[in-house]
Design a protein around this nucleic acid. Structure first.
Length: 164
DNA sequence: GCCAACGTTGGC
DNA sequence: GCCAACGTTGGC
């Protein structure tokens, strides 16, 4: 809808499928996106994500990187509990309960693509050339995606599924 | 496993 | 506040 009062934002979230892939999210239905330790990615969660935003779930550091499914943002930002766990890998010594350093949102499973849209296929298409994940050296684990790009990715993924 | 690109840290 | 060193990311 072109004139929606509150158009959803689109995001791309990377995850390594060996540690947490789309099928994990499918099983969990919903998860807190803990462990982000990059300030820019945190700022996106803390300041810019809204309930209802659409997440393109991307598998990285694997044999066939690409967009494997969809999720929804289902909470406002809140402090990442893992920063307070002194024994945990994501402990943040600078954080206090009064002044947390890291934030998370909850995301909920929406869909696992029958056929993922692979990074190689995204690269092939000139209309995606300006996407952040395609820029050389882009390592940001959470990036905003233009709605035109996001909708096209979803459309192509769905088409790929039907073509099989 | 390699390596380029990047963000973060810490000494000064 | 600079910047070198370091650790990490992620595609190949």
């Amino acid at each position: 809808m072109k004139f929606a009062a509150h158009p959803a934002n689109y995001w791309l979230i990377k995850s390594e499928p060996v540690s947490y892939g789309i099928e994990h999210l499918k099983g969990d239905k919903k998860t807190a996106w803990t462990g982000v330790r990059n300030f820019q990615a945190r700022n996106y969660m803390q300041n810019d994500m809204r309930v209802g935003d659409v997440v393109l779930f991307y598998h990285s550091s694997c044999k066939e990187p690409g967009v494997y499914g969809l999720a929804n943002v289902v909470s406002e930002a809140y402090p990442d509990p893992t920063q307070f766990d002194a024994q945990g890998h994501y402990f943040e010594p600078r954080a206090t309960k009064e002044k947390p350093v890291w934030y998370v949102v909850d995301i909920a499973f929406v869909e696992e693509f029958k056929t993922p849209l692979l990074l190689t296929e995204i690269r092939e298409r000139p209309q995606f050339a300006k996407m952040m994940i395609l820029q050389p050296g882009s390592r940001l684990s959470i990036t905003p995606v233009d709605s035109t790009h996001a909708e096209e990715i979803i459309r192509l993924a769905h088409e790929g599924g039907m073509a099989q």
